[in-house]
């Protein structure tokens, strides 16, 4: 495969990605409480406690920030 073809293939793969950049000032929908990974914080904490007690490992749950882009 020629280098140009490889570059073209990579470019097309990048364009075909389903990821869409959301600017910080456009995160109004992402900041809604019902868009959170966990809507019930107490239940989520209990579940995590059960998980790390059984598995001896912390789960990687949650994301950095509530969607406002401040973190």
């Amino acid at each position: 495969m020629k280098p140009l073809h490889v570059a073209l293939l990579l470019g097309l793969s990048a364009l075909a990605s389903a990821c869409q950049h959301v600017d910080p000032w456009e995160r109004n929908l992402l900041a809604r409480p019902d868009m959170a990974w966990e809507t019930d914080e107490i239940a989520a904490t209990q579940e995590q406690h059960t998980y790390f007690s059984k598995e001896a490992a912390m789960p990687g749950g949650g994301v950095g920030g509530g969607g406002c882009g401040c973190n």
């Binding site: 000032w25 109004n28 900041a31 406002c68 882009g69």
Partner: peptide, 10 residues
């Protein structure tokens, strides 16, 4: 100051 109603730290 840039702010929005949905942004808690704002």
């Amino acid at each position: 100051d840039f702010w929005a109603s949905w942004c808690a730290p704002c």
